[in-house]
Design a binder for these strands. Structure first.
Lengths: 214, 214
DNA sequence: ACCTGAACACCGTTCAAGT
DNA sequence: ACCTGAACACCGTTCAAGT
């Protein structure tokens, strides 16, 4: 009897639902890690939680809502600590790289962030505040702070998406004659042996930082 | 009788299917214009073409395939003509702006482009060639041509996605105290009365071009 | 308050059968 | 060669009914 009781109510805990935001988000992230975002469906998530699909809707408004929870959780992986330890330009470089690397593994979240009001994501808001403070303290004109952050973020998101490109995406196939300059540029870049997405990110990031921050 | 014949075979034309890539793409684009990408389904496309959904699969491998056709068609809207008439930096600015404005209206195509081998999209390839030639002729080191283009493109795609953000996306809600720098930066930017997405695009684009091209 | 089971209104895609 | 109609294997979401 006692055993059966325990399996239904966690001993010593207040009697609450077995589902909450934390547990749902955690299982969702496990599903994503195991099988990508195409493997994240409400039905599979319910099965992973040992519950019927409709039960989820007592806690989540919609799948879009769930994706916002996941976004908020993933955002904690972005490292903003360099603003406390490094000069501004280096700190921005570290932060941007961490930001890109994080969302390279969560590309389907990018459209979610792009549309999500920051007020709904306190951790994201705190990150923006940290960057805004660093830029302001460095003497950047106040009205340029937000455009600077947004420009960096647009570049970061675009670069994160670019990392999923197949490595041979630029093979010109049968069109070599009409695309001589481009084809030779591809080969010259390939000879450097650094992945195109990394070389592009480094190059763009340096230009953005040097051109936008004091 | 003749009338019935005409309604089944276009007079004077070779006897072919009523469906071809051009007509399918055109109807798909009309659907997108009328009701967005969430309105583009194989069933609705079939209805628009007066055909059963399964008939489409005699001409298209998959919906992904269809999106590639649309991408190729939309890409023709990007204006590369400035490379023939303007100095390099101004030309890049015009081209990038046209590129962003075009895909602001076709955001769901961006993941398609990011993964599509350029060999499958001759028009896109021609565009890359035009930009590569301009950069090469301006004296940019050959191995830097592709990273320069990719960095610009990442920024363009990210900026295109940013244009779909709600105008009040940065309202901090109840967190004003903890996010003082950011909140004040938002207000300072707002006072300029230029949309955040446009200010950010202009600022980032200028930095990228000045930092990457001779 | 929270869960189940059935149902709804869709998706993209396949395939036998027809012409 | 190309189309139809039925079917399949899913989706996200709703809702009455139960506890």
């Amino acid at each position: 009897m006692i055993v059966v009781e325990n399996s239904h109510r966690k001993a010593g805990r207040p009697r609450t639902s077995v589902l909450d935001r934390e547990r749902i988000t955690q299982h969702a992230l496990e599903l994503v890690t195991a099988s990508g975002y195409e493997g994240l469906t409400m039905q599979r998530l319910a099965k992973s939680l040992g519950v019927s699909p409709s039960a989820l809707y007592n806690h989540v408004d919609s799948k879009q809502d769930l994706l916002q929870w996941i976004q908020e959780s993933v955002m904690t992986q972005v490292d903003s600590s360099s603003f406390d330890t490094l000069p501004l330009r280096e700190a921005l470089g570290h932060w941007a790289t961490s930001y890109r690397d994080t969302f390279s593994n969560h590309i389907p979240l990018i459209p979610v962030i792009a549309v999500l009001p920051v007020a709904d994501s306190p951790r994201t808001l705190r990150m923006y505040e940290r960057v805004a403070r660093a830029l302001t303290e460095a003497g950047l004109a106040q009205e340029q702070v937000v455009p600077t952050i947004v420009a960096l973020e647009s570049f970061i998101f675009g670069s994160a998406m670019d990392t999923s490109a197949p490595h041979d995406i630029f093979d010109a196939g049968a069109h070599h004659e009409e695309t001589q300059n481009f084809t030779e540029a591809i080969e010259a870049q390939r000879r450097t042996e650094v992945p195109t997405s990394d070389a592009s990110f480094q190059r763009g990031l340096r230009a953005l930082i040097e051109g936008m921050v004091p």
